[in-house]
Design a protein around this nucleic acid. Structure first.
Lengths: 198, 198, 198, 198
DNA sequence: GATGAATGAGGTTTCATTCAT
DNA sequence: AATGAATGAAACCTCATTCAT
């Protein structure tokens, strides 16, 4: 396998296990099965390694969140199904204790100083989710609140809850999960029936 | 001021600015205006300092989130007002770039869980929020999904969104903020009118 | 003894023995009898240590060159005696394999890039030699060529020759040494007798 | 061009620019346009490369110092002209910031003498200068002080002064340069007219 | 109690050298 | 012969912790 990828993936594992406080180049090298010096052939320094990892992690997370996801807007049922898929993919990412999810959380929680120029690439990578919500808005299904907002109230609770589940603070079964998912759907949908009522 | 508190608060500032990767005892000492050795009179070691900071941070965050919060369940209006207060306090905590919020995020995102007793203390500190949701459920206002779940879909999006706002990914004004808050309210409430419709 | 001085003097010894190619912080620490970390309490980094050593060395060399030197211009005899003293001090500095002399040579031979802002302090430290030659010029004893020039043709050959002697390329005894010294004196003096001849 | 020469010349450039402290095989390889491994086909190790460079530098310097130099002793005028040529060549070598001159200085200033055979080779390379002074002595023009001594007081000041000029400590024009050269000539010559006077 | 100089283990990074291609 | 990726020892530097004052 490509050695740079090997190093990035080792970094991913070590960061997910040890956190920023403890990760060291030596640990990464050992975990990747290369000499410490080798890392410096592919990365300028430790900071560069972590910056490139962030990009890598972002893409991995997006890939998993968008697994089986299709731009299918044939009707409200199709849109609901895509929503369910997104929500469950997001939930499972954390439930599976996926390194990518752990690391994305760590990167996102860094003091703001270090979060500057990540915006653009984050936006690109999550473009499908924005298109999805935008389309739903223009079809009159979702509240006209902006795709970032809809994502935060519709999908991101899956993150928070999965983290609580993994930490043992809650213990939802599949059926309860579906109830939560439906509540999130309520949060983002215009309530047409209510409108009709008036 | 109490010297231990002085040290904890310096730690809070330095951690919020530098993150786990860079914080050092020397930096904390300098920031607190004490000698490095002094820190070791109040804390066993660096790990103990950070563990105690976590507790400290948790309490600070809770205090700010529960600012002006009252256990007032006289009617649905009162409950809605308390919800609005909670949501806005949560939003503002991050918007103000409050060190406590930054640090809570960092602690919560740590991958290794030396937690265990942390869970318990988190539960205690956020007890008011649990009581609030529990009471709302029993009054038939909120969906019967458990207080953790309601908190995750009703309040925590305020965290996520505020973080996006601070990082410049979105730019909500006060009115848009209210719309989002209402959407979160939709997510947690039983839709009585719909029920009546049937 | 003052610890900073202890470190500087160890650096002096190690640099004189090992040269820039081989000197290391660890060697200096060992030689000074301190821990490596201690060096960084007194010097920003290795470069700072060497820069400060340069200043230190300059002063040491000057002190030895000006040992017993007096600003005595009572007559030509006095001036000649001061010249002889300067010349012999210079010669002995290298002959004694003095670390300062070895190091000054090494610093002075560094690629020009690194020699920029040393000028001013070199000029200050060697001010007495400039005053000496200036005064001799104004008294009509020395050729009016500028004090730097007179120093280069009158005194600095003592450096070159001592280096050759130490390296075993030549082997001058005391009497031959005096002959050379006289030749250097010829180089810088106006030859009054010749003038009278015309 | 011959690959070994290409490497030696790259080493010359890099050493003149970076000094012993910073020169590395990788830099030399890059500068020479060859792979690092290639260097080890022509040189045993780094030390061998630098040792061979020293020889190379010595020859280059000598070649430049003896440019246009002829063993012409027809009369005192011819000898004086050869002296002027030597002095100016020496001066220009440093003034031109010639890599060879920079490096010769660096090599000559090394504190540890793995030399021994270096002495011999220096003597061979500078044989013309020794023959020149020896012949001048036997012709009764120069003081009978040994060719090394005459070289140190007659020619080497040109080195010292040129270094000062390059470092900006002095600023001699062509005419002043000639005056200095004459002073050096005074230093090495027997003063026949004075002798006659007695 | 408080200090901060000192320590040295351990982290980051460089670079001489090797070796499979 | 030439390459340049890979190695790992050793360099520079940081920082948690101790201890004499």
């Amino acid at each position: 396998m490509d050695k740079k990828t090997k190093i990035l993936e080792a970094t991913e594992r070590v960061l997910a296990e040890q956190g920023f406080e403890r990760i060291s180049i030596q640990m990464v090298a050992k975990n990747a099965g290369v000499a410490t010096g080798t890392i410096y052939r592919y990365f300028v320094d430790k900071n560069d390694l972590l910056t490139q990892l962030r990009e890598h992690v972002l893409k991995q997370c997006a890939a998993k969140m968008f697994h089986d996801f299709k731009d299918d807007f044939s009707d409200e049922i199709a849109i609901k199904n895509q929503f369910i898929l997104l929500w469950k993919n997001t939930w499972n990412l954390t439930i599976d204790r996926d390194d990518g999810a752990i690391n994305k959380e760590q990167f996102d929680s860094l003091p703001y100083k270090k979060n500057g120029h990540q915006k653009q690439s984050e936006r690109e990578v999550f473009a499908p989710i924005h298109r999805f919500f935008q389309r739903g808005i223009s079809m009159g299904i979702f509240k006209p609140l902006g795709s970032d907002v809809l994502s935060s109230i519709g999908i991101e609770p899956a993150f928070f809850l999965a983290r609580k589940q993994v930490n043992g603070l809650i213990n939802l079964n599949a059926s309860e999960c579906n109830d939560v998912l439906e509540a999130c759907w309520d949060a983002i949908c215009l309530n047409k029936k209510l409108e009709l009522l008036k």
